[in-house]
Nucleic acid binder design. Structure first.
Lengths: 201, 201, 201, 201
DNA sequence: CATGAATGAGGTTTCATTCAT
DNA sequence: AATGAATGAAACCTCATTCAT
């Protein structure tokens, strides 16, 4: 029944909160259980172990990310505008989900086991999507063709990850979206785009 | 006298190796002690505790990085060439020191306490140096002036960190320096440099 | 339900035995656990830490002391007889509980932290009771009025504590109750009581 | 040479200070060494081990106690006056040596090994002396003859020890000698002395 | 299915003592 | 004789996981 799903959700939600505050090692099952209003043992009915619970977080969140991203990209035309929108959305998303940001960027992204996980694969729709936009840009002639599309993607994600990571480590004391335009410019230029002309808005 | 320094070095060296393989929580003092050929208690004569030993690693390594970087920049003229060389050296350094790379980029860079450490401050010479080169580039007119120099630096370090991080997480299965030229181009363009003309070599 | 209380009791009982033989520092949690037939970790489900377990001993035993003392004082009339009975009971109690005696008199009574403990407060019923008897004796005119009742109480408890302490340190090689009558006389005289006339039995 | 004796003295002095603040378990050889301005290893040239050093403290101090006590008793006539003087001196001594008081009364007196020590025997001169005074009192007819002289001595030492112990545990917040007269009275009466008539001063 | 008490392995750290210099 | 660096044993405590109810 849906009781089971509901309960699983509340455990994941509690896990997001707890792992978002402390790191993996310092988070305890008992605190998650308490926050989820279930007994410790119950968690082991839904998740194999602590790590399994940990990695089920991005599974959940990456779907949320994809779903909403798609909505935001609706109706936008031209690779350049799409990239700009993606950059904005990326920064916007982590502004709204700093706890998940800490978990994903400061912990998981950095763990050896993560790459082997199904959770890791759940990012494929997003990363594939970006690749498509880049190709579209090359077809439109607004993205340079002399560099591998994978490297171009690495440029985009690298800069964004770095920005969010720095912001998280600074304890979110400033507005992440403030630098959105500048980043946009840099990335655009790196990609060989004529950012100014195609700029969104 | 030098016996003491020698012993401290061998402990740090062992720590670099062990912390490079496992993460902080999973590394044990006893393994470090064994690798350094000292008793566990001896470590506590040189370091206050496990964390103190951990953070003494970048203190050590960042000096090595600075020292050698300086040699490599000797005699190079022009901001563009200097940046190119820096990019190459950065990738080269972590190719040679993957264990330290894991410790620094996958663990420390991401730990809240790290920023408060003296170890963190030991990177200042390098990051300050980059800023100087960027300014030099602006004076030469090869670096764009419409973006803050701090953002430009973030572009460079962000991309490099991201590349090395991905490489480390892939378990170093490919040659990091392979993509040196491409990265160079991207960063150059991002910075507004005429990379082709000033390209090193 | 009662399983939990039972288990807590068996841990305290084991603690009384172990702390009674060795001192606090030399007693180990593992020995207590073994004696109580529980795992070491279980102890930490019932007590915050080693010290908490230690101080829970007098909490337990002082209630036993009070409860039985009350029974023994039932039906006894006159302050002098009550004091005599108290003296006897005090010596009797520690004759039966030498391990607890060692813990209480040779360790706790002498520890700075103990005074701040709730355990310390658990003696109040007994010490308050003695004060009442002394006042009663002053009203009856059998206890001197020229000395503070607190000093009189210190006389009684001081002599008794000293006796039991010496006995414990001699490794209980003689009969503590043997000297009961003599002590009685001394205390009575110190208090200004006509011990001979009112003597119990 | 006297250099050796001097050095031993400074170690004992440092030990008195350190053991007087912390208890045996919490005092460290390294702190004592530092306070004595010697290396840790040096202590082991003068004392077999930590316990040996610990027990050498009363050896030192009990001689000081005896020596000065004898001076104070010089010229005093009558057992009653001598006892009174002893009571005063006892309280006076620990007022001047609270650190040693803590070590002796809160720690050693309570340790099983202490009784087996030579240090313990060093109190004999004092305790024997008291016995002599009590006998003298019985000959003079001012001390009751119906109670063992050992019990009488226990009365005296018991009350005094108890007083000093309570004072030490209260962190010496009041004047120990304040209650000297009252204690005197109690003990005198307990001993069957006519305290009022023979009172010192 | 839910519970939560019980488990016990395992690591950090301290510090008395030794011993080569 | 003095040093003080090195030693290593030993113990508390935490917490993920299990399992009987």
């Amino acid at each position: 029944m849906s009781k089971r799903i509901e309960r699983k959700q509340s455990i994941i939600q509690a896990a997001i909160e707890v792992f978002g505050e402390k790191n993996f090692a310092n988070s305890t099952i008992s605190e998650i259980a308490e926050k989820a209003n279930v007994a410790e043992g119950t968690i082991y009915q839904y998740f194999k172990n602590k790590e399994d619970l940990f990695f089920s977080i991005p599974l959940e969140k990456s779907m949320e990310f994809s779903r909403e991203l798609e909505l935001h990209l609706q109706g936008i035309r031209g690779a350049s505008n799409k990239i700009s929108k993606f950059i904005w959305y990326y920064l916007h998303f982590f502004t709204k989900n700093p706890g998940y940001g800490r978990t994903l960027l400061l912990e998981m992204r950095v763990s050896k086991n993560f790459v082997k996980t199904t959770a890791y694969k759940s990012f494929r729709p997003v990363t594939d999507g970006i690749l498509e936009i880049i190709k579209e840009g090359q077809r439109e002639g607004v993205v340079r063709g002399d560099v591998s599309i994978y490297i171009v993607r690495q440029l985009i994600l690298g800069v964004l990850e770095h920005m969010v990571t720095r912001w998280l480590l600074s304890e979110e004391r400033y507005d992440l979206l403030e630098h959105c335009d500048e980043v946009n410019k840099l990335i655009m230029d790196g990609m060989g785009m004529k950012a100014d002309l195609n700029q969104l808005r």
